[in-house]
């Protein structure tokens, strides 16, 4: 790159990062503001955080979200891993169609799945509650687990499995001793993706959760609709910091894993 181009791009990049981060930082700063109304700085306080932790609605919603995310992760990781291994390994009639079906959740608008599930539950007379959110989340998460794993499997050296078989290992043994350890990081990455997708998901949860069983995003939505309040700022700040923490940890672990394996 020429020096001039590089400088222009550098300034541009800084501006984009400012666009990303100024709103987030302003939001965080005002979570410490002493005034309930408006967005004028009047003084420093921790009050909003203290209130937050005594707000049972928020604590409940956080636990609801965690519960749904954990169940979604377990189901979609198992389903997705089985499907990805099959797609990678076997040729069978209808493979293209199956591959296409797994792509649908990636491109279908979330609101369409959400209202379709609402209609399904209503026909089956299923009472909406916490558990009714899980099927929709699994639909999305499974496809992403499959995508992540297929990418990982594509980089897998088939010779390793063949070597194991040549040396007399049966299929089961080959899988557990050779294939699984190799794709384990992929499964882990897929599971993490499934977990975060579910934790973050709003639209399906909004339509398919029952009264009184809010997830965190659904609760945030109803709070924000009521207007600006420093309590939302405080809650948001905690959630953003949680994201930062997870990203730093995952980034650090991946870095180490890559170094150990000499890069993927």
């Amino acid at each position: 790159m020429r020096e001039g181009t590089k400088k222009t791009l550098f300034v541009f990049t800084i501006l984009v990062f400012a666009f990303f981060y100024i709103p987030i930082l302003v939001l965080m700063v005002f979570s410490f503001n002493d005034s309930k109304i408006g967005t004028v700085w009047t003084g420093f306080t921790f009050d909003w955080y203290i209130r937050l932790f005594s707000n049972s609605q928020i604590i409940d919603a956080a636990f609801n979200s965690l519960f749904i995310a954990i169940v979604t992760t377990v189901i979609s990781t198992v389903l997705g891993t089985l499907a990805a291994l099959t797609l990678h390994r076997y040729g069978f009639p209808g493979k293209r169609t199956v591959g296409f079906v797994f792509y649908i959740p990636v491109v279908i608008p979330d609101i369409v799945l959400a209202v379709a599930l609402l209609v399904l539950y209503s026909f089956l007379n299923v009472k909406l509650g916490l558990a009714t959110v899980i099927p929709g989340h699994v639909v999305f998460a499974t496809s992403f687990v499959i995508l992540v794993l297929l990418a990982r499997l594509a980089g897998l050296d088939k010779a390793l499995e063949e070597a194991a078989k040549d040396l007399g290992a049966n299929e089961w043994h080959t899988f557990w001793k050779v294939t699984f350890p190799l794709i384990y990081p992929g499964i882990l990455a897929g599971a993490l993706l499934a977990f975060t997708i579910s934790l973050d998901e709003f639209v399906v949860a909004f339509f398919t959760t029952g009264p009184g069983s809010n997830t965190l995003p659904v609760l945030v939505y109803s709070m924000v609709r009521r207007g600006v309040s420093p309590e939302i700022n405080a809650l948001s700040t905690i959630l953003i910091l949680a994201v930062v923490l997870v990203i730093v940890i995952v980034g650090w672990r991946m870095n180490r894993m890559n170094k150990q394996q000499g890069g993927i």
Binding site: I24, T196, D200, F202, P217, V220, V224, S236, L239, V243
Partner: peptide, 11 residues
Amino acid sequence: WTNLLIRLYSW
């Protein structure tokens, strides 16, 4: 990875 609702709220 930050929730869309939170990021819209900041605006």
